[in-house]
Amino acid sequence: MDKMEDKILVERVLKGERDAFRELIRRYQRLVEHMVARLIDDDRDREEVAQDIFVKVYQKLADFNFESKLSTWIATIAYRHSINALKKSQRFKNEDDIDKIKFEGSAVENTYEKEDYAKFINKWIALLPVRYRTILTLYHLEEMSYPEIMEVMEMPEGTVKNYLFRARRKLKELLEPQLNKEIVL
């Protein structure tokens, strides 16, 4: 999204134009939708968390200084709010070493044949720690650059790259036996 367009839009919102805020939500709804879908485990909580994120965006918009893209700033709010929501519901696991996590695959494998592969891989992603899921989402789905992801997650570039690499490698390890067995690529 063009930075100038965003600036004009933000100024209109700050003047109190309801339609401008509707437009802002429309522009960034997909970004927030992707983030809550990947970070919030419970379907029932996602809609509410997404609403909370936009309420926060509105309340803090006057503090946004355009040093970063609006999308990066909204993603930062979405990330922090999702983490807080997970902590509140006691679903946040502060597990950063992906190799130490035990993945129970039976639940995924049971539904594998009934669903398409995108759903299948999304179920594995849902089992990854939150930080890995966030990086995968921002990089692959939102096509954010490393500096943007660093800003959203407040992590050094090396850590972001490392998490991304390890997340994909873990997915490969988890998927490979099934793919080799079932998929004719």
């Binding site: 939708e33 995108a118 999304n122 789905l141």
Partner: peptide, 10 residues
């Protein structure tokens, strides 16, 4: 697959 949207809509 990572570039496909998750199965969730607001």
């Amino acid at each position: 697959e990572l570039e496909k949207s998750p199965d969730f809509r607001l």
